[in-house]
Write a protein that binds this DNA or RNA. Structure first.
Lengths: 116, 116
DNA sequence: ACCTACCCATAGTTTATCTATGGTAACGCG
DNA sequence: CGCGTTACCATAGATAAACTATGGGTAGGT
């Protein structure tokens, strides 16, 4: 029985949808490609597990923020390619501004700024 | 039956413990005071509900990151004052560096930095 | 023939936050 | 002096998002 460290989350809860939408602004991608892209761009700090990713994509589809179609990859496999919709682009803007507002607020609490 | 907007969280999940610990680095406070402090410092952006706050304080107590004692407030009421322990201060450091790493990683994904 | 990498998807568990509820005590006010 | 309001603590139940575990399918290489 190995002593194990308390498991830390692979990403900040509440940021997954935003990360996926942002990734799709560059080009349509399949799920596997989205996960790879986030992992690489973040220098391996953020890892999106399949059990988080695919449910998230279902949510995004339901909201109409992405659409999907089956295609063949460069390596000749069937894969679902997700594309950002106009509504998704708008949603991304909303989530980004809310996120930045949160981060700024946290920054104010975490700094020792003194008021009068 | 009123149409209601989708409820947005009052703070970023996963940041509450860090915010509380940080707040207690200034001075010991009771729960109500912690909530007020976070709300004010964040310019009302972050609101800690009682149902989030007190369970969080129980967690922190269990971990030994804060200790508590009953005292009287300036307004002559009984209240539990929480004080940061050395272990809590250490934990705060850990959480802050992890948080900053996450934020930096998210920043890399959210910016359009191009690699070769 | 098998193995590995690629790719999708869901069920079940866990964890953190929110909502709702309930209680105690001090103070101001009519 | 009763009554409402504010200050304060605490827990139970609901909700949501992420994780673990599992299962399946296909292409390419050896």
């Amino acid at each position: 029985m190995v002593t194990r460290m308390a498991k830390k989350p692979d990403l900040l809860p509440g940021t997954l949808d935003m990360l996926i939408l942002k990734t799709l602004t560059r080009t349509p991608l399949h799920g596997y490609g989205i996960a790879l892209s986030i992992k690489r761009l973040s220098d391996d700090v953020l890892t999106v597990e399949e059990g988080s990713l695919y449910p998230a994509l279902q949510r995004l589809l339901l909201h109409g923020w992405v659409k999907a179609e089956w295609k063949m990859t460069e390596t000749n496999r069937r894969a679902r390619f997700y594309t950002l919709t106009p509504a998704g682009r708008k949603q991304l803007g909303i989530e980004m501004s809310q996120f930045e507002q949160m981060i700024a607020a946290i920054g104010r609490v975490m700094s020792d700024a003194r008021e009068a």
